[in-house]
Design a protein around this nucleic acid. Structure first.
Lengths: 225, 225
DNA sequence: TAACTAAGATACGGGTCTGTATCTATCTGT
DNA sequence: ACAGATAGATACAGACCCGTATCTTAGTTA
């Protein structure tokens, strides 16, 4: 840690990280298109501009590669969530329709990217030994959304009669189904707006409940960690 | 069609149907456990007590076999839904918790069976040419639930401010996510009850809305077909 | 009972895949 | 500048899988 110059950019470690990223990018694409079993390491390596040997230097097995892609996928989702709530219009100024639209747009627009997210779930269902590490990431994401909800509800002074973490998990859980419907039930009514309408109609319908809900949200937040 | 006796049970056609069913049963299990790509026709045939030759006499390809399994899966889901609402306690006598419990129990309890349902969705996402035939089944199921909702809301005189078909599709869409959460987020709060609470809190909160909703439901029903 | 038909078994061909073991060349530390 | 380490390529082994083509055996029909 002495002289850190620009030349440091191409140190061996940097280079290793570089190809690792290229491999992960390629893997994401191929896994998304073909699925875990359907994808071949050959195709992934070629898409990245390397050969299978490179993959085995960086990842122990196909499974490990897949899990590494999963981790990155989650992180990028989390990041995109953070980014999307920062610069945009404050939530209280949005009507229902635009809120639904914004949510929908935040989702993956490419069916393959979306399919990859589903594939991760399938993988965990079929590889219970990986459940724990993935569940941790799920919870992390949910907690981040819960924090956002707490923050908003404090500003707006309104909240749903439900723990914020539960609401966050509920939203995430339903989100996949809603997006799937958007892909498969093409031509039929959008479901995001009705779903949000449901959420909204549960807000502020009873002042006594409101009081209670606020308390719940507080305790939930303080119990966060 | 002359003498139809018990011997008719083992006519060639009957026998063919029999093995076809055995093949489908085995295929369901293996596909559920290994996924579409991961499953081998060899294993399926063996599990059914036949060889790969039998499969190709009954189904043109692996894809066709998979789609046949899908069709049967949907039909059985539909049937189990019908069965479950007939003999049980009328809905108005159930509290929220037992309703949630009943819904949850209606779902597949084996992770592999559930995974198979997801696998179907993935398959359609990756094989757009099959989208249409599967979408038809999705809509059929949703319509059946919509009918049920209409029926109940007529008896109970209360309904959510939403087209019944939309509500049905919404429930189905969210259902998968809820069940997935039940499998993956083990140890955390159940999500079925909060979800139902959301639905319920949207009922009967405003008498004027109630009137409007009733009208919507009626028109939806008459426009069914 | 003999010819026909079809269900299902067996055999084959061509291909692909994962994982490991070995090789090469570039980079690092001294 | 040289010896060691390591990223990545190449080569290899063993297995598996799909689809088709052929064969066998049992049931159907006349």
């Amino acid at each position: 840690m002495q002289d850190v110059t620009v030349a440091e950019r191409w140190t061996q470690e940097r280079r290793r990280e570089h190809t690792r990223n290229l491999l992960l990018d390629a893997a994401k694409d191929v896994f998304a298109r073909r699925g875990f079993e359907g994808a071949s390491l050959e195709e992934i390596a070629e898409a990245a501009g390397y050969t299978r040997g490179a993959i085995y230097k960086h990842f122990g097995s196909k499974e490990e590669l897949f899990l590494a892609v999963n981790k990155r996928y989650n992180e990028s989702f989390l990041k995109s969530f953070v980014d999307s709530i920062d610069p945009a219009t404050p939530v209280e100024e949005l009507d229902l329709a635009s809120l639904a639209k914004r949510w929908h747009e935040m989702q993956y627009s490419d069916p393959h990217d979306f399919a990859l997210g589903i594939e991760f779930n399938l993988f965990v269902l079929r590889h219970p030994e990986t459940m724990e590490r993935v569940a941790k990431q799920r919870l992390e994401l949910a907690q981040m959304i819960a924090d956002f909800i707490d923050e908003q509800s404090e500003r707006l002074g309104e909240i749903i009669h439900m723990k914020s973490l539960t609401l966050a998990r509920l939203s995430l859980a339903c989100s996949d189904g809603l997006q799937l419907a958007a892909f498969l039930d093409r031509g039929q009514d959008d479901l995001y707006e009705p779903f949000l309408a449901l959420l909204v109609s549960a807000i502020e319908d009873d002042p006594t409940k409101k009081q209670k809900a606020k308390k719940t949200a507080k305790s939930a937040k303080s119990a966060k960690k």
